[in-house]
């Protein structure tokens, strides 16, 4: 398949990329790993006149420890994240979920920034960013902005990014002591996209009760979202099996479930509670 024609730029600095973005405006699309955008271009669902490739900007690819958490450059690949001991230690659910994206070849190209910016309803990392309380740093000419993951995902394939902005860094706060994390997904067998996916970050007190919980879900509705009903049911509970089941039964509250060839809305509504319970149980186990 052949895409429409486009002009291609490969800037080597964020400043140069932003200047190109300002110059070309709505005609331009940013190219990260390309594994969402290029397939869209091949089917001509996307026909940008200008592609600005961020792949040659080496300063956008890094994983650093920051205040006990992490600062990750937007062009860092899934493979780099999944294989990073720093991520495995400071935000284990991010490494776990990144290692379950698609397949090895796609993980070698796809990036955390591309995944979050694309906001695919079946993408894995939006749910993880929500569960970890990530802060997303954007750059535009002469300015920076920080957007909470809670405010970033607006709708289907739509984020809070402005047309002149580049997502440049993902900051993940330190996990409190006693916190366990886990990701559980029902993957499409061919693509490994999440039919439903649940990221759980659960803090367990010394008395075994739940001190705090953040649950991010993907695949269920038009965008990744927090399962706030599940979170509030968990906090203060003793996290035994019946408490986890009861809390997980709220994971689909308020969601307008996706219906497609892979799963009916009714099936997704069932799956989301099952996978929420699995993710929570695994997170609690990992907390100890």
């Amino acid at each position: 398949m052949v895409t429409s024609s486009f002009d291609y730029y490969a800037p080597t600095s964020v400043a140069d990329a932003l200047a190109l973005l300002d110059q070309h405006g709505d005609d331009a699309k940013l190219l990260a790993g390309g594994h969402s955008l290029i397939p869209l271009m091949k089917t001509r669902l996307a026909e940008p006149a200008v592609l600005i490739d961020l792949g040659k900007i080496s300063t956008l690819s890094y994983i650093n420890e920051q205040d006990g958490g992490l600062a990750i450059g937007a062009m860092t690949t899934y493979s780099e994240i999944a294989g990073s001991e720093l991520v495995q230690s400071n935000a284990p659910v991010l490494a776990e979920a990144s290692g379950q994206v698609a397949d090895n070849q796609i993980r070698n190209r796809g990036t955390i920034g591309g995944s979050l910016s694309h906001s695919d309803p079946a993408g894995d990392l939006p749910a993880v960013a929500l569960a970890l309380g990530a802060q997303l740093t954007t750059s535009s000419s002469g300015a920076h902005r920080t957007i909470s993951a809670d405010d970033f995902f607006v709708d289907l394939l739509t984020t809070a990014l402005e047309p002149n902005e580049i997502l440049s860094e993902i900051v993940i706060p330190a996990l409190p002591a006693g916190t366990g994390t886990a990701y559980a997904k029902f993957a499409n067998k061919a693509s490994h996209y999440a039919v439903v996916g649940v990221a759980a970050v659960v803090t367990v007190g010394s008395d075994g009760t739940c001190q705090s919980a953040r649950i991010g879900i993907t695949g269920a509705g038009p965008k990744a979202t927090r399962a706030t009903g599940t979170e509030s049911a968990l906090v203060g509970s003793n996290l035994d099996d019946s408490a986890v089941r009861a809390a997980a039964s709220h994971a689909g509250d308020g969601i307008d479930f996706n219906e497609d060839v892979h799963a009916s809305g009714e099936y997704r509504a069932h799956l989301i509670s099952v996978y929420a319970a699995r993710a929570i149980r695994a997170a609690v186990e990992n907390a100890s």
Binding site: G55, N104, R109
Partner: peptide, 15 residues
């Protein structure tokens, strides 16, 4: 591609 397996149908030659 630089030591990593990639699907060359989803990479532009210019990249």
């Amino acid at each position: 591609l630089n030591g990593d397996a990639v699907k060359s149908c989803t990479v532009f030659a210019v990249q």
